[in-house]
Design a protein around this nucleic acid. Structure first.
Lengths: 156, 156
DNA sequence: ATAATTTATTTGTTGCAACAAATATTGTTG
DNA sequence: CAACAATATTTGTTGCAACAAATAAATTAT
């Protein structure tokens, strides 16, 4: 079964006919969320990165040319980063970011991009674009807007 | 910021105006998927279970009164279970399932529910229903159908 | 100025997840 | 039936995630 993602959710989840449209939406959302996550993973994995690593790199880049402190990264980060320290450890070890003691506040660290980090972000642009393109092929602009609105409404 | 989930995605993700409706959908799907996952986690956590544990328990129950082998659980499981063994270890240690050697094929295990396992599934029904109800409050039946269709279409 | 409080980051610990390799049983073929 | 391949599960290893606790520096109050 290689093409699960292209099937209606009723056919993916074999046995059960859903008790309600609401139940179906829940299962479908979880399924689709996992699918997107897995698709993204494939891209990131080629660079030995995780989605969170990418998010953090984007945030650091977004602050350039100024360095940024971990506490400020945390504020912006979608998925809350419990141990940003060890995540930054890994990025530093891979040479993608630099850590310096902040001169004006010695309990704070200054995180900044390296050239290598910038280069990896560039290299990722293409593969990630392909992913958005794929969705663009399957939904019209109105449908995409509609979907986004329904998701907003569903949450609350 | 306690009410992220009730905000339009543009406001959740502070800085960026999205480059396209498609990009917005991607971010919104990931955000909504994580949100659902987190909400479910809260319920499961009260019983010291993970979502996967619940899925597996449901599958085993769905096969009653017959026992089921791990390989057959894997076939039905949505999220692929790399190490079902250790997941079943945990369920067994908590007394929710039993493991027996399959008499007709000694490299296979027979997994079956215990009374305690059945009881936990019953106890979970209420809390999980509340969750579906919440979505029902926010979307009409047509909207739920529409959302499910859009998700199916998006995947391909 | 000193003590208490808050802030920023790090460290420790535990459990889970992903991947490959190992073991044991069954099925197949010459 | 002996050798080889396939199947079903387990084990080993490594890295990440979640949570609490610890450290260290700055801020505030006494």
């Amino acid at each position: 079964m290689h093409y699960l993602c292209t099937m209606k959710i009723e056919n993916v989840i074999k046995q059960s006919s859903f008790s309600s449209s609401y139940h179906k939406v829940v299962v479908n959302l979880i399924f689709t969320g996992n699918w997107i996550r897995d698709e993204q993973m494939k891209v990131f994995k080629q660079f030995d990165l995780l989605p969170q690593h990418y998010n953090v790199l984007r945030i650091i880049k977004g602050h350039m040319p100024h360095p940024i402190a971990p506490k400020d990264i945390k504020e912006v980060l979608i998925d809350k980063a419990g141990d940003l320290t060890r995540l930054l450890d890994k990025l530093e070890k891979k040479g993608l970011v630099k850590r310096n003691l902040c001169p004006s506040n010695r309990r704070q660290m200054d995180i900044s991009m390296t050239d290598k980090g910038l280069k990896i972000l560039e290299q990722l642009q293409g593969p990630l674009q392909i992913f958005t393109d794929m969705i663009q092929n399957n939904l019209s602009k109105d449908q995409a807007e509609n979907l986004s609105d329904l998701l907003d409404q569903l949450r609350g």
